[in-house]
Design a protein around this nucleic acid. Structure first.
Lengths: 243, 243
DNA sequence: AATAGTCGTTACGATGGCAAAACGCCTTGA
DNA sequence: TCAAGGCGTTTTGCCATCGTAACGACTATT
């Protein structure tokens, strides 16, 4: 395992000095194992710490008064969790481990000191946050303006590409580790309808499933159906020069 | 008019030194008038500049292949427009003036230099971006999991509170300057259905309209219907100390 | 063996989209 | 002052999409 999952993921997109890498690695000095289903943070909890995810899956969500759940984001190894917590004193969203995971909590004030000592990291986090915002707007358009089938297609493609960023072993099949209900709660559908769409897409030869692993058979058609655009190629990697 | 709309809005949330305020004011040295309906940026345009909005209304949106439009965000005076542009070389979204407006374009590299000379501003922008992300997740939950009526209620409340941040003259009635079609494209509904909901809420005494101005008559019930939570009171204003 | 969790499947019904037309209101121009 | 046009709103009927409820099958865990 690398010294810093977070730095490792960052360097897929942006350039870091050795000092910055070392500083980021210090955020991951206290790994903690959490079991599938364990709550890491609840809405309205006073915020004292943020996290880096090393292994497994974590997701953020909110529960509406009528009991329905909206999953906001699924986190993968190397992801920085809880950026929302930097600007609020109480958690605006809950965090739960979707599968057995290893998270690295660090103090909110430790992050502030890091930003003071390594000002360029603040700019990097600003950029990262903007990228996350764009991916959020893509989901907004998906939820607001597309059919159930398009949402499922876009969701699978998004998960596939995000998994590949940190996991080189992924070729064309991957273990999502999400139930169909969790997929539905991510894209604003019921598990019943997610199931309908998945089976339909299987019959059409778009995807296949073998013991829980998805395989995307026809990328091109999936991207078409899901109105999916991979934004990675448009990233401005050198805007913020090194050192 | 203040030297810097942007700095003025920022200081509603966060503390700025005089030097930082002056640096931000320099972003607004080139005001430009744009007419209602004028395109400021198109999807996939190479990005060279970002904007601060001084007067009027600007919105960002995307058009899906089937021609439908998702409005991503409505910007008000004092808003920083185009944070998405910092990390991409091509615009991921279009920008259009919703009403006659004054925008202040500035070079993308001028922003980079500003971040280098005033490292704390990078951290402030990081925080601001995180706040925007949270407001985006609120909309995600609204689109994914709530009824048409709830979305309209939440949208009106959101616009009302955001307008009040920079416009002290607003008491309880306000001029949204958006058509019902634009409201629909913001919250994933057709203009027909937006109209249905607005008239229904009028009849129920929740809101009223007089020559284009909305008046929110029953805040409490609106917040209830829209599952609206005002997050402003939970902001962590002092996490990043001054200077 | 028992229990719990996930997936598969069906029938039924509500929510909200679509198409089309009329209405009101403002602007422009004679 | 009136007419013409454009734009946004209002209204209607029809119907597709997607949600709800309910149950059975399958698997893993205890």
């Amino acid at each position: 395992m690398p010294d810093s999952c977070f730095a490792e993921q960052l360097t897929r997109h942006l350039r870091l000095t050795n000092a910055e890498q070392a500083a980021l690695a210090r955020l991951e000095e206290n790994p903690r194992k959490v079991k599938r289903g364990a709550m890491i943070q609840r809405v309205n909890d006073p915020i004292t710490e943020l996290f880096v995810l090393r292994q497994g899956r974590v997701m953020s969500f909110v529960i509406l008064p009528d009991g329905s759940r909206q999953i906001l984001r699924v986190y993968f190894p190397g992801d920085f969790i809880g950026s929302a917590s930097t600007i609020y004193t109480r958690a605006p969203e809950s965090l739960v481990a979707v599968s057995d995971s290893v998270i690295c909590p660090f103090d909110k004030h430790a992050l502030r000191r890091l930003l003071e000592e390594h000002p360029r990291v603040a700019a990097l986090l600003f950029l990262l946050s903007n990228a996350e915002r764009v991916s959020m707007t893509d989901r907004l358009a998906s939820l607001g303006r597309t059919s159930a089938k398009a949402r499922v297609a876009a969701f699978l493609l998004d998960m596939f590409h995000r998994l590949r960023v940190t996991d080189d072993s992924i070729e064309d099949s991957f273990d999502l580790k999400l139930t169909q209900e969790e997929i539905g709660d991510s894209i604003g559908l019921t598990s019943v309808h997610v199931n309908r769409m998945i089976r339909q897409m299987e019959q059409e030869g778009l995807i296949s499933r073998t013991n829980g692993r998805f395989r995307l058979l026809d990328m091109e058609r999936l991207e078409d159906i899901g109105h999916y655009t991979n934004r990675h190629k448009d990233m401005d990697l050198d805007w913020l020069p090194v050192g």
